[in-house]
């Protein structure tokens, strides 16, 4: 599972509220779609939990379902307390899990 974390805007100071965009490359299968060749149902496969941590403290926990679009985007706000590491842990309903990190480096 490939992931992408974007902090918007790119430059920010401590105390600023920034947006964190998290995107994961995932099919987000609903379990209702049929294979076009065989006609068999494609089993549900979707990200069901995403955790955002800053310096190992939980900021936001998400419980999500298959209704999110393919390659889902999740965006939250975050008030930058200072420098540190942002970690996002995403897990799907089949137990596949991915951990991605990005440094938080406020300027000024």
């Amino acid at each position: 599972m490939k992931t992408l974390i974007k902090i918007k805007p790119k430059t920010y100071a401590a105390g600023d509220i920034v947006k964190i965009d998290f995107m994961a490359m995932h099919p987000m299968e609903t379990g209702m779609r049929k294979d076009k060749d065989t006609g068999a149902l494609i089993p549900a496969n979707y990200i069901d939990e995403v955790k955002f941590m800053f310096n190992d403290t939980l900021i936001t926990k998400m419980v999500i379902w298959e209704s999110l679009s393919v390659n889902p985007l999740m965006s939250i706000s975050f008030k930058v307390p200072g420098a540190g590491t942002l970690k996002v842990i995403a897990k799907d309903n089949k137990g596949q899990s991915v951990e991605s990190t990005t440094p938080i480096t406020p300027k000024g």
Binding site: I17, K19, D21, F54, T57, L58, I59, T60, K61, M62, V63, I64, W65, S67, L68, S69, P72, L73, M74, S75, I76, S77, F78, K79, P81
Partner: peptide, 16 residues
């Protein structure tokens, strides 16, 4: 989606 926020978010926002 159920988004569980904390005061650390600074703003109650969710986009998807």
């Amino acid at each position: 989606a159920n988004i569980y926020l904390t005061p650390a978010n600074g703003e109650a926002f969710f986009g998807t």
